[in-house]
Amino acid sequence: MSQPESAVADAQAGGRAPESLAALAERYGLRRAIARPSLPAYLRQLWDRRHFILTYATSRNVSKYSESALGQLWQVLTPLLNAAVYWLMFGVILAQSKRIENYPAFLITGVMVFTFTQRTVTGGAKSISANLSLIRALHFPRAALPLAYAIQELQLLGWSMGVLIVLVLVTGEPITWLWLLIPVSLLMQMVFNIGVSLFMARIGAFVRDMNQLLPFILRTWLYASGVFYSINDKTRNLPDLLRWALEFNPAAAYIEFMRDLLIYQRFPERWAWTTCLFWAVFALIIGFWYFWRAEERYGRG
């Protein structure tokens, strides 16, 4: 099967007055294969891939537990066991509970809320480096990967929240109208998580040691976020600036917000709203911008 098209093609290309290939490309409107899309175009591309992002997240969750005997039941068992371990350590053995009213609910709310951020950030940091083969084979806006990891964690969070709400009811807290604000709180936290995990995705993609270091950073953050103790109690005697810094900690803000709704039955203060909203918006804008800036470099080199 020998078709002579190519010969003609070359003859045509060469037959004209000598023309550089770059000029030829320009004449036919061909563009360089590697270029970063503008931010609005990038957002549009990402929106076009929303089905991929959702399906990828769901698929990862389904495949994650498919090897174990209990299967999808682990989505509920994991948060339950987590809560049990922390309750045993800090509620029974270290006996924090005497100073804080309804300590089990206090603790488990903190653990669940913090775990949501922790897992999303950990996943985000790996989302590029663990999917190099995918990145090297297909074209799609790379932010789809950290987003899919975040949505995967959101799906898991659904189960954790179920467990949390049951436990809070069991410990004797009533259902109030404030519970309607739970989705709002989670939404703000989710937006914050996405921002941070986009930021960490870029760092994790280029700083190969980040995935080893990240658990330590996250554990420090955990201890600084008032998961096991009440930040208000501990910071009462600290200088203003330090207290302000500790209370401005985003993880602590989201935890306290959720405790207000579930345990203290009070409408979160304006300070809490401001902090939570600020972190969500700030993290998303910075994280997205920072991730997008390196778009054309992921999966290379």
């Binding site: 290939l21 770059a22 563009r31 360089r32 294969a33 995918l134 084979a137 297909l138 054309e296």
Partner: peptide, 23 residues
């Protein structure tokens, strides 16, 4: 999917590798 060290590739539309194995 790989940046040129020197020179360039000009294309019309988006060339795609056949293969979704990684996904």
């Amino acid at each position: 999917l790989l940046p040129p060290h020197k020179g360039a590739v000009y294309t019309n539309g988006q060339p795609s590798l056949l293969g979704v194995n990684a996904a």
